[in-house]
Simulated assay, not measured.
Amino acid sequence: MKTSFFQMNARAVVCAVACGVIPFAASAQTYTFKIGAGRIDPRATSGDLEGTLPTGFAGAPLVPLPAGNHLEVMPKSTLLFSIERSFDDHWSAELVLGVPPTHDVKLRVSDSVKSGAANAALVKAALGADAFTNPAKTAAAITASGGAANYVSMRVADNVNKYDGVTVARVKQAAPTLFLNYKFLDASSALRPYVGVGINYTNFKVTSTQAGNDLYTDGPVRISSTDSIGLAFQVGGTYKFDKNWSASAGWTTAAVKNNVTIRTNTSEQTLTYRFHPSVFSLMMGYSY
Rank of each mutant, 00 (worst) to 15 (best):
A131Q: 01
A131I: 02
A131G: 03
F132Y: 06
T133A: 06
N134M: 03
P135V: 02
P135N: 12
T138L: 10
A139F: 14
A140W: 12
A141F: 10
T143G: 01
A144V: 07
A144T: 10
S145Y: 04
G147N: 07
A149P: 02
N150K: 07
N150Q: 11
R155G: 06
V156S: 02
A157K: 02
V160P: 11
V160I: 14
K162P: 05
K162F: 09
T167Y: 02
V168C: 02
V171D: 00
V171R: 00
Q173S: 14
Q173A: 15
A175Q: 09
L180C: 05
N181R: 15
N181V: 12
K183M: 14
K183R: 15
K183C: 13
K183T: 14
F184L: 11
F184A: 14
F184K: 10
F184D: 09
L185G: 06
D186A: 15
D186T: 14
A190V: 03
L191R: 04
R192F: 01
R192H: 02
P193I: 15
V195L: 15
G196L: 15
N200L: 12
N200G: 15
Y201P: 01
T202N: 14
F204R: 05
F204W: 05
F204C: 02
K205D: 15
K205I: 07
Q210E: 12
A211G: 09
N213P: 12
N213V: 10
D214S: 12
L215M: 12
L215S: 12
D218I: 09
V221E: 07
I223H: 01
S224V: 09
S225M: 00
S225E: 02
D227R: 09
S228L: 08
G230Q: 00
F233I: 14
Q234S: 13
Q234W: 00
V235Q: 08
G236H: 08
G236R: 13
K240D: 01
K240P: 03
N244T: 09
W245D: 04
S246R: 03
A247N: 02
A247H: 06
S248A: 14
